[in-house]
Design a protein around this nucleic acid. Structure first.
Length: 711
RNA sequence: GGGUCUGUAGUUCAGCUUGGAAGAACGUCCGCCUGCGGAGCGGAAGGUCUAGGGUUCAAAUCCCUAUAGAUCCGCCA
């Protein structure tokens, strides 16, 4: 109606230059009409009130829809703000809505409701989760998984063919020593006694602890006295470390205070360097203290694993063996070592699959970092990078790319990066690609993988779901790709950013093998959902003809996925498990409940879901205000999906679902639907319920949630 | 030191692209014990939209400055 009226107003009053935007009138002035707009910007030099009167009269005279008008004035310092509010002719309005409702009803009943074909024929790749395969997926990772999967579904709804990818980071120090630990345990015939990813998480934590302790001991053996145990700290070690670092920090602080601040530039630089060193010392000091505790903690929680590994590494040069393993794997030199790396990662990935499956998430492809490394693309890229003007090849063999201000600004402009809210005003730090031993750094492999995504999957657009912390590396990734001439890749590689998740009252730490895993979270939700269902069964007289398990799973799915997408991705969220598990406070179950209620209504009537809208007389609908609101909501689903896609923000769609559910609840409570004396009215109301049902189902399905008929 | 993100009701947030009359849920208080299913509904209280300045007839919204919090700036991946 608003849109239509807007056009009508524009047509009639040609002296209103520009487009009129009608607003809904607030309740204080409701007797003046339903819609209104601000007259000031059109009135120019004329007194707004007088101008409003003129326009109002003209509108009443020329439009059969507008019955009368009212003027509302808000006083300000200067000229008052004047609203022209329009009251509609009830009969014409009724006719208009009747026609409009039928239109919307037909639209909603279409098979492709909610879906568009704007991106038909195009291929999109969404890479998400990509958690390190050395620890279970925890609630922190889960936001990535759910955001990525939901966004993939939104892309599909706008016509894309979507590939969901998981990038397996199977190279690096952490996986290196974890694999060493795994091999030891396998030889000693110590096998997993819990789900593999949970178990490998413990192995990782223990190996990391042993590895870090020996590294620290080696590093500081000449600086202060340390006990002869290679893989353990004693109380005395910690005291010595504390003394050593504290005195160093004190010394540096004294140096800072003695600095001459006359030469500002030199002073600032020196100060920065000194505070960085202080930070380092503080870091090491904390490492000594915390690994002392971690070691004891892990030993007491997982005594068998810990002791087996601890004893085994005594006769082992852990640092040497790890680096040997890594070198062999990275260069694909030894089949046996390759097998054991793959064994660990593949088992973990299988466990990941089981985890995300609970959340209705599946992947279309898994790519190994090691494969990318072996494929030979790296040499080719490196050769071309070395020829770039901003490449810097140092005598020790390292290769860096320099990005001063001018280059960055120019490239950002050419790539149109400011549309993503990213316009660095200064240069960005140097990007190092090659170590002095000639091996490739992560950034290098990431470039190769980005290009591979476009080639292997024939992608038109790629979305990397990665936390906002990684904004800089993601930018550093695009620029060299662009310089190498991969224009399509650079322009269509997007960073889907999201802020991190915190858990109320809990700190998560992989090093300590302390986290709330996604498995725990789901299991806990299932338990709560069971309890909630039992309680509802007690009070409800309804016999539920659906499997308990399906209902419980649907509720658990909604309650876990919903909180992770209902606020916008660049808002940090704190999960309060008590709140999320209370189904009265979590919006997910509420929407499922609304849907189940539509089922309840339909069950009691012989009308079917395929009811033909053209048989329905919408003029019989009463309580027009809420009906109009519902219809307006239903009408815009497709637009809402598109908006979520364009703004990389699924929360717009989740809000849409919640709004529709709440409005339906309101309608349901205030209006009797079945058993009415007037058959036409009943039919119209049933139609409305069918439409809402279709809307909820479509919206929820795009969000990756399942609906159930009973709750 | 330099980027980026965030600051709106007691709490969690929407609204900012494209300026126009301050929104939702939860929590609190008061009503509706179930007529199509109470995981619900109605009502009330609760806000100098972090601060200051600018542009404008008009700023939560645009621009500048400040401030608080998060985060990034390694031969880690």
């Amino acid at each position: 109606m608003r849109k239509f009226l807007q056009e009508e107003v524009n047509r009639i009053c040609d002296e209103l230059q520009g487009t009129v935007v009608l607003e809904e009138v607030i309740s204080d002035y409701r007797e003046q009409g339903e819609f209104g707009f601000v007259i000031n910007k059109y009135s120019k030099k004329e007194e707004p009130v007088i101008f409003a009167k003129k326009v109002g009269e003209k509108l009443v005279e020329n439009s059969r829809y507008i019955e009368s008008y009212g003027i509302a004035t808000i006083e300000t310092k200067n000229r008052p703000i004047v609203f022209l509010n329009l009251k509609l002719n009830e009969k014409e309005k009724q006719l208009f809505y009747t026609k409009k409702f039928e239109e919307i009803a037909k639209f909603v009943m279409r098979n492709d409701y909610g879906f568009s074909e704007i991106n038909k024929g195009k291929i999109a790749v969404v890479e998400h989760t990509s958690a390190n395969p050395i620890a279970p997926i925890h609630v922190g990772n889960l936001r990535n998984t759910i955001q990525g999967d939901t966004y993939a579904r939104i892309l599909e709804a706008t016509g894309y063919q979507v590939y969901r990818l998981f990038y397996i980071n199977d190279i690096g120090l952490q996986i290196g020593f974890t694999v060493v630990g795994y091999k030891i345990l396998k030889e000693k015939r110590v096998f997993p006694d819990v789900k593999f990813d949970h178990w490998i998480g413990r192995v990782y934590a223990i190996m990391n602890c042993l590895f870090t302790i020996i590294t620290l001991k080696r590093k500081y053996a000449t600086n202060f006295e340390l006990s002869k145990f290679n893989y353990k700290f004693t109380k005395k070690d910690i005291d010595n470390a504390k003394n050593y670092f504290s005195s160093n920090i004190k010394r540096l602080e004294k140096e800072i205070s003695l600095l001459d601040d006359k030469n500002l530039k030199v002073y600032k630089k020196a100060k920065r360097e000194l505070s960085r060193e202080i930070k380092n010392f503080n870091g090491y000091k904390n490492d000594f203290i915390s690994y002392f505790e971690i070691s004891k903690d892990l030993e007491s929680r997982f005594p068998r694993l810990f002791n087996t590994l601890y004893n085994a590494v005594q006769d082992l040069d852990l640092l040497g063996v790890t680096s040997e393993y890594l070198k062999n794997y990275e260069n694909d030199l030894n089949q046996e070592i390759k097998n054991i790396f793959r064994e660990v990662t593949d088992w973990t990935i299988e466990a990941f699959k089981a985890t995300v499956n609970n959340f209705n998430v599946r992947f279309d492809g898994f790519d190994y970092e090691s494969d990318v490394t072996w494929e030979g693309r790296l040499e080719e890229i490196l050769a071309r990078i070395k020829k770039l003007d901003n490449a810097e090849i140092q005598s020790d063999g390292t290769v860096k790319l320099k990005y001063p201000k001018e280059i960055v600004n120019k490239m950002c402009k050419e790539l149109d990066l400011d549309k993503n809210n990213f316009l660095p005003k200064s240069g960005i730090p140097d990007l190092q690609l090659i170590r002095n031993d000639g091996t490739a750094l992560y950034a290098m492999k990431d470039m190769a993988y980005s290009i591979k995504k476009f080639e292997k999957y024939k992608a038109d657009v790629v979305y990397n779901v990665i936390s906002s912390e990684q904004s800089l590396p993601q930018l550093q990734l695009i620029l060299p790709i662009y310089q190498l001439g991969y224009l399509k890749v650079a322009k269509n590689l997007n960073h889907y950013k999201y802020e991190l998740v915190e858990l109320l009252g809990k700190t998560m730490s992989g090093r300590r093998a302390q986290y709330i895993t996604a498995d725990d979270y789901f299991f806990e939700t299932v338990v709560r959902s069971k309890i909630a269902k039992q309680e509802s069964d007690k009070t409800s007289k309804v016999v539920k003809e659906e499997k308990d398990e399906d209902i419980i799973n649907a509720v658990a799915l909604a309650s876990t996925r919903f909180p992770l997408i209902e606020s916008s991705p660049n808002k940090k969220i704190t999960l309060d498990l008590e709140r999320e598990l209370d189904f009265r406070r979590n919006s997910g179950p509420l929407i499922l409940y609304a849907y189940a209620r539509t089922s309840g209504v339909l069950r009691k009537t012989n009308k079917k879901e395929d009811l033909d809208p053209s048989r329905v007389k919408f003029e019989y609908l009463s309580n027009i205000e809420i009906v109009v609101k519902i219809m307006n909501t239903l009408e815009v689903l497709t637009e809402q999906v598109l908006e979520s896609q364009i703004s990389l923000d699924p929360s717009k769609l989740s809000t849409w679902c919640r709004t529709l559910a709440l409005d339906f609840m309101k309608f349901y409570e205030t209006e009797k639907i079945l058993g009415l004396s007037d058959e036409e009215e009943e039919l119209a109301k049933i139609m409305l319920v069918i439409l809402i049902r279709k809307g909820l189902k479509t919206g929820l399905n795009i969000l990756g949630l399942n609906t159930v008929e009973w709750l």
